[in-house]
Simulated scan of single mutants.
Amino acid sequence: MRVTIAGAGAVGRSIAGELLENGHEVLLIDKAPKAISVEGVPQAEWLLADACEIASLDEAGMQRCNVVIAATGDDKVNLVVSLLAKTEYGVPRVVARVNDPRNEWLFNEAWGVDVAVSTPRLMSALVEEAVSVGDLVRLMRFSQGEANLVELTLPPEAPLSGARCGDVAWPRDTALVTIIRGNKVIAPQPDDVLQSGDELLFVAAPEREEELETLLSVRQ
């Protein structure tokens, strides 16, 4: 898979390193000469250019990319890169970094964003996830499809503790994707039995979150 990352700061370089280790081709673009640190990620391709300019994206071969990651520290730049990648080059998957949570509402399909990643919101959600049992925690929003990745740790008194996954009438537009039990990651099957303490990860439509929390919590 070929991935272009706009923004070669600490975030962009870290993402590039992970993707390269997984066998992907990576191009890092940045307009600041001091950000071009080839020795930091020597396996990547590098381009000193403004990712908001069509000429730069042409030079980068954006039409050959499978994924574009807008990872700069400027939300305006990330939105422009996302929009150009999707509308001008038809990139199948666009992931954008949200620096200011107040701007998160802009990072949607209209701006070409498939997945918006808000670092402050994600860190806050992970803190909530670590201390919350029985409360639904939103971890990530998927712009395309209007769905969220949400988590709930099943409390001991929950009515569904001991129920088979296949017997539960889950809300519409909701899918249980993973059960984390101790150090095990379980791909849920109909015969799997829910246990108190299970960390349940769902992809759910936003309007179904309250219904899902009511179903799983002890407050019914």
Rank of each mutant, 00 (worst) to 15 (best):
A130I: 06
S161D: 04
F107L: 01
E109Q: 14
E109H: 06
S143P: 02
W111Q: 08
L122D: 06
P155G: 09
L126M: 09
M140N: 15
G112F: 15
C165V: 04
L154D: 03
L152I: 10
D167K: 01
S143L: 02
G134I: 14
G145H: 14
M123T: 11
D114A: 09
V131P: 13
V133I: 12
E146W: 12
L152T: 04
E157I: 10
R138W: 09
L106E: 07
A130S: 11
D114R: 03
L106D: 02
R138G: 13
A147R: 00
F107M: 05
L149Q: 05
D114K: 06
F107S: 00
S118V: 03
F107W: 00
S118E: 02
V150G: 11
Q144R: 05
Q144T: 07
L154H: 14
G134W: 15
R138D: 06
P159D: 06
R121K: 15
L139K: 01
G166A: 04
L160M: 12
P159W: 08
D167F: 03
E151P: 05
V117L: 01
E129W: 08
L154A: 02
V137L: 10
M123L: 13
T119Q: 11
R164H: 12
V137N: 13
G166N: 00
E146H: 14
A158H: 12
A158N: 05
A110V: 00
M140K: 11
P156C: 06
E129V: 11
S118G: 01
G162D: 05
V113G: 00
N148I: 03
F142W: 12
E146M: 13
S143R: 05
A158V: 07
V115I: 01
G166R: 00
E151L: 09
L139S: 04
R164F: 07
E128I: 13
L149I: 06
E128Q: 15
Q144Y: 09
S124N: 10
V113L: 02
S161R: 09
L122C: 04
